[in-house]
């Protein structure tokens, strides 16, 4: 096991869903909007990241194979 390459540390402290667009907005400690992590870059594979993360579901956020966690597929088939 080796660490994923480090990605730039995100400068946001909080993320929330924008009611109108249903996209995520990232806020700093003062509640100001900051740039979304990963947008416009192809670098960084240490999840969670943005558009440049083809590590594909291996991050803490995603189904990691072996059956989906939220639906009908049990893990040890």
């Amino acid at each position: 096991m080796v660490p994923y390459p480090a990605s730039g540390s995100p400068e946001y402290v909080r993320a929330e869903l924008a009611p109108d667009t249903q996209t995520t907005r990232y806020l700093d400690a003062d509640g100001s909007l900051v740039r979304a992590p990963g947008h416009g870059t192809s670098t960084g594979t240490n999840p969670p990241t943005g558009t440049g993360n083809p590590s594909d579901g291996k991050g803490p956020g995603g189904p990691s194979g072996g059956g989906d966690q939220d639906t009908g597929n049990d893990g040890d088939q």
Partner: peptide, 12 residues
Amino acid sequence: VPVYLRDGVSCT
């Protein structure tokens, strides 16, 4: 590749 953390760092 399940989540595999070493000292809190995501590994593969």
